[in-house]
Design a protein around this nucleic acid. Structure first.
Lengths: 240, 240
DNA sequence: CGCCAGATTGAACCCACTCAATACCGGTGG
DNA sequence: CCACCGGTATTGAGTGGGTTCAATCTGGCG
């Protein structure tokens, strides 16, 4: 069943949620969202169950997908089995754009819970919607900036700080979508979170426990309540 | 002075050099290059000295740039001073595309030695060259895949393996540009290399020394000769 | 020459990893 | 209902790879 965080609401203009919460100048760019662009178009909708793949790397690419509900993760896999989760995607995010110019998908996309995507026929949209390619380029550039932000986070912050950055980023994104920024329901396991943040799952658990002991959050399995957002932000400022 | 690695040669179709050398399926996509697309167009050329900024994050964005000669680095900076080098760019690479949809540049771009770029008037090209936007989107997607590859490398490989991955990637890129894949002239300092690979500069130096002691490379300050490319590749395969 | 940035090397330390044990929760079936 | 189970999360103890601090060395340049 779709729970509160998944109920489709009204179309919202969603901000391009960003990352480090010590904002990089110019990195939190406003993205108008694609839902408005598609008004009145007949789109194939697709519902996915928990842990169901939307597509896998190497499969022939037909379309792009716009997430309408649910949380997805994208990941890349090396030939020797090393895996890296490249992001957790939510409503308004596009899936498959990283494979533009390729005949096959470049990553795996999997639903972390029940979700719904809208299938965007790429070639058609380029013709019928003149603005489409422009917006697509903007979305791609936005993804690059997002990635760079996380690269910065991962390579310059301590384990605990990375977890804090993640929580604050998630809170901001949920808020931009109209959800509570204080009650986070993590859709990913500790292992997935650790993979994304370049940490071991035990380290993630320890960090969460420690943040709780500081009174900044309240952890209850996958539900996290943010008690002191300012306090969390303060942890991200190394010295000052 | 432009040395051998910088002398502009003929236009080449350059492969989209990639990363882990344990290739991710579908990630080493062929990119046709932009130089051919611009035949006969009057482009402003701009030459840069060593350590000269092409642009900085926050500056108003007017154009994109295509590197014609030299090596550039791009980096992002957080408000509290943490820096992350996001890539070392060479001939055929585009600079500034990550800022599409923004009014200002999103990163710093600096020449690591003398270099030359071609200024691409974005708006004009969109109109006059119908294929341009398409190719741009492909280049953006390609950058995303490249970033993901390095994220995977950094978060799953040891210090020494990261250095190896870097050397092999650089060799492959130089080779694709028509240069020697055995004599690498690093244009970046150990500190910059470490920053890119999420390592300390001392760790980079130690890794290079150790690889030399294994007889795989020969290090002489910034010149590195690759003595055993297959041996280096073998280091990237964890178990097998 | 003297100076300085960059590179190398050594030694001590520490954060995060590794291994391991335990606890917890949801589901399933007796 | 409880017992059992597998997947997930927590917590502890010990280790080690990479960091940190510091000293030395090298090469380029005024």
């Amino acid at each position: 069943m779709l729970d509160t965080q998944l109920v489709p609401g009204n179309v919202v203009d969603l901000a391009d949620g960003f990352v480090t919460l010590l904002p990089l100048p110019g990195m939190a760019t406003a993205d108008q969202g694609f839902e408005g662009l598609l008004e009145g178009m007949p789109l194939r909708r697709r519902r996915l169950r928990k842990k169901q793949y939307l597509f896998r790397a190497g499969q022939p690419r037909h379309s792009l997908f716009l997430i309408h509900a649910g949380v997805f993760r994208t990941s890349v896999l090396s030939s020797d089995g090393r895996e890296k989760i490249t992001g957790f995607r939510m409503r308004g995010d596009l899936l498959g754009i990283d494979a533009l110019g390729m005949a096959t998908y470049a990553c795996d996309a999997i639903a972390l819970d029940v979700g719904e995507v809208w299938e965007l026929p790429y070639a058609e949209l380029c013709e019928s919607v003149p603005e489409f390619e422009h917006r697509l380029a903007n979305a791609l550039a936005s993804e690059i900036r997002r990635d760079w932000g996380w690269m910065l986070t991962v390579s310059t912050l301590s384990a605990e700080q990375r977890v804090v950055a993640f929580l604050l980023d998630l809170a901001a994104r949920l808020e931009a979508l109209g959800f509570s920024a204080h009650r986070l329901l993590l859709r990913m396991s500790r292992a997935e979170l650790g993979n994304f943040l370049a940490l071991q799952l035990e380290t993630v658990a320890r960090a969460l426990s420690h943040l709780q002991s500081l009174g900044l959050i309240c952890v209850e399995r996958r539900e996290i309540r943010i008690e002191d957002r300012a306090g969390l932000r303060a942890l991200l400022c190394p010295s000052q």
